[in-house]
Design a protein around this nucleic acid. Sequence first.
DNA 1: TCAATTTTGTATCGCTCGGTATGGAATGAA
DNA 2: TTCATTCCATACCGAGCGATACAAAATTGA
Lengths: 194, 194
Amino acid sequence: MTLKTKGRPRGFDADAALDRAIEVFWEHGYEGASLTDLTSAMGINRPSMYAAYGNKEELFRRAVARYAEHDMAYARAALAEPTAYKVIEKFLTANADALTRPDRPAGCLSIQGGLAGGSDDGEIAQFLATSRLAGERALAERLAELDLPAGTDPAALARYVMTVSEGNAVHAAAGVDRASLYATIDFALRAVPA
Amino acid sequence: MTLKTKGRPRGFDADAALDRAIEVFWEHGYEGASLTDLTSAMGINRPSMYAAYGNKEELFRRAVARYAEHDMAYARAALAEPTAYKVIEKFLTANADALTRPDRPAGCLSIQGGLAGGSDDGEIAQFLATSRLAGERALAERLAELDLPAGTDPAALARYVMTVSEGNAVHAAAGVDRASLYATIDFALRAVPA
DNA sequence: TCAATTTTGTATCGCTCGGTATGGAATGAA
DNA sequence: TTCATTCCATACCGAGCGATACAAAATTGA
């Protein structure tokens, strides 16, 4: 799969470097993560970053894509559960686990990355919002396939679940521990048709 | 109440200027709001801002304090309701209204202001988190006074309600409309003891 | 062995950031 | 009128930002 390269070979693993960039963006947000922070965490120099990823915004988009693929695999796994209640229960608990992993920053990259539009016209915030709403739509579509009581809107239920998930992410970023998030989920599940 | 001043009188209303600063922080976040953005919205020059408020961080803290006093008065009003269910119902609906006021930025300053620790070591994010948790504690204390079923932890219930509120704030900032937030609240209230 | 190609390290670019020095303008007190 | 005091406006500061120019280093193909 490695195509024959002509020039000097790259001295670092682009995916491993991306993993380190993910954590920097996760902790400091898009705007708060400076190129000095990023490249020093990635173990490379600035020109290497620009050659490999384009610019800071592209690096961020690649980081979010990789984050969605790896750190949010639990969400796709939860969709495989056989009932609506179990899908939601598994999604929320696995989400709470991910929000409080001891070896990772607290919270969720797609929220920590940036909610407010900073210097740009909210381009980053909008990109993250779109990506979150895509997850919400995927959940709604899965719920629509499953056994919901008549009159229950799958899209509204999915939005409720994502709302709890995002609120938990805000709490986790503030230092709230895993057990407390579980307690919140216990309440949240009481609103879900069994 | 105006004490006799000696020198040249101030040429602007400090509270009105603060209201304009609130909106800039609300839209762009603490880091994303530059002094040029702020002072031009406030209609004053930089030295006037520094003379009146100290520095950018102090301006932000004053803005958040004024925001809590004015734009979040609905929260204190909701606490006056006579039952736990009504307190929570009124808090969440008034919150959804505030998150989607057409004459104000979408979402909530205490979340839009900044979740991730930027250049500083998360001092702003921590300040905002502390202020949000103070609101949560106030709600918990009020719920503890009211009629909850035996075995219901007021602190956990308050945390659940704030989680929904914060999730709605994230959704509102992403452009979700008021009716959708209401639908989320309809689900959320099903978990609240009546 | 040499040209072609790509990456790497250094040093720097122009720009914007938060913050300030300075002098003139506007007031109250004497 | 004059002084002391306070505020306003211009112009500027050092620092850090994202992004790059340039040449040395490392590889492939001829």
